[in-house]
Structures are given as C-alpha cells and as structure tokens.
C-alpha cells in the first residue's frame, strides 16, 4: 500500500467542504490516516475536528495522538464507547458521551450541540468507524442515520469524513456507503 496521507490530503483538498467522503482503509493505515486527517488537514487548516469515536474510547485516541506529538486542542469527541465501560470523565470539556452506539439519534444531537458550541467555527466531522457502528446497528437503521448525519454536517459547511475498514466490509455495508457518500475512496 502507498502512504495514505498524500492520497487523503489530495482528495480532501480536491473535494472541499460539504462533500461526504468515505476512506476505505486497511488496519495498517489506521494511524497514518488519523495523522493525516487531524494533524495535516484539520490543524493545518484551523478546523475544529468533531471526532465520533465508536472504535475506541476518546481517551485512547487522545493518548495515541499525543504520543505522536499531535495537537489535540481543537478536537471535540462524541464518545460512544466510554459510557458503557463507565470510563467517562465528567470534567472532560473536550468530550461528550453517548450512552450506547445503538443510540444513533444522540450521536446526531451531540454533533449538533458541538456545532452550536463552536459558533460558526469551520469543522471537520470524522466518523470512526462505520464498521464499528454496523456491529451494533442494522444496516437499514444505519442508512437512515448516515443520511441525517451527512446532511447535517454538510449543511454546516463541514468536511464529513467516514472511515471504513477494508477487511471488515460486508457487501450490504459497502452498498449503503455508496448510497450515502458523495465519494467512496479505497486507499491503494
């Protein structure tokens, strides 16, 4: 596989905001992708990053990014994992929690809350990952959710990015992503 970062940056710069894009990646490209999105795109452009954590707790993502010396100050997390494990910190201003990844409407509402809190800041929204959400939800439900989430992010002029894992893709999930995303990019 080629390095993921240049492909991601080139695609995002080409598409601009309000275009939903799915990056279909291999597990080995996960941190390279994260670095490209957060550090080399969001931080460089001064975007506030709303990071929807479904794969791992927000605290783990923050630790991983900090160990890579990436500035996480402009990141806001919608954490759908930590509540279930009772690991949510009540004094964490950077994170809002959703009780369960099955409560899809609350993911939309928490994103909306962060948009309002950001009062006109430019945003990127990253969903990490659609495969983890699919493990908790039926694809039909997920389809409806993704349509609302993407429409909401686009209407705010954000960059909506979905991460999907190449080796966890089921045909019905891929079909759904192709319907809800403006661009489906498999990183070579």
């Amino acid at each position: 596989m080629e390095e993921a970062a240049p492909q991601i940056l080139s695609k995002l710069n080409e598409l601009g905001p309000s275009v939903s894009v799915d990056f279909n990646i291999g597990v080995e490209a996960y941190f390279d992708t994260l670095t490209a999105l957060v550090d080399r795109f969001c931080n460089k452009k001064g975007l506030t990053c709303i990071y929807i954590s479904v794969t791992m707790p927000s605290s783990t993502t923050i630790s991983a990014l900090r160990s890579l010396e990436i500035d996480t100050a402009k990141m806001r997390f919608v954490d759908c994992i930590s509540f279930a494990t009772m690991e949510c910190a009540s004094d964490d201003a950077q994170t809002v929690y959703v009780e369960s990844p099955t409560m899809l409407e609350y993911i939309v509402l928490k994103m909306e809350y962060l948009f309002r809190k950001g009062k006109g800041e430019p945003f990127m929204v990253i969903l990490d990952s659609v495969n983890s959400l699919a493990a908790h939800n039926e694809v039909r439900m997920l389809y409806e959710f993704m349509q609302v989430l993407m429409a909401s992010a686009k209407s705010r002029g954000a960059y909506p990015v979905i991460l999907s894992m190449e080796d966890q893709m089921k045909p019905e999930l891929q079909e759904m992503l192709q319907l809800v995303c403006d661009q489906f990019v498999t990183l070579k």
Binding site: L104, E105, V108, L109, E112, Y113, R116, K117, E138, R140, M141, E144, F145, V148
Partner: peptide, 14 residues
C-alpha cells in the same frame, strides 16, 4: 444541552 433544546427525527430503520 447547555446550548438549549435540540431535536432530531426518531429513526425508524425501515
């Protein structure tokens, strides 16, 4: 929320 009441349509999944 601290930003006020927020609503979104309840999903049906069919």
């Amino acid at each position: 929320t601290p930003e006020g009441l927020l609503i979104t349509p309840m999903l049906r999944g069919f």
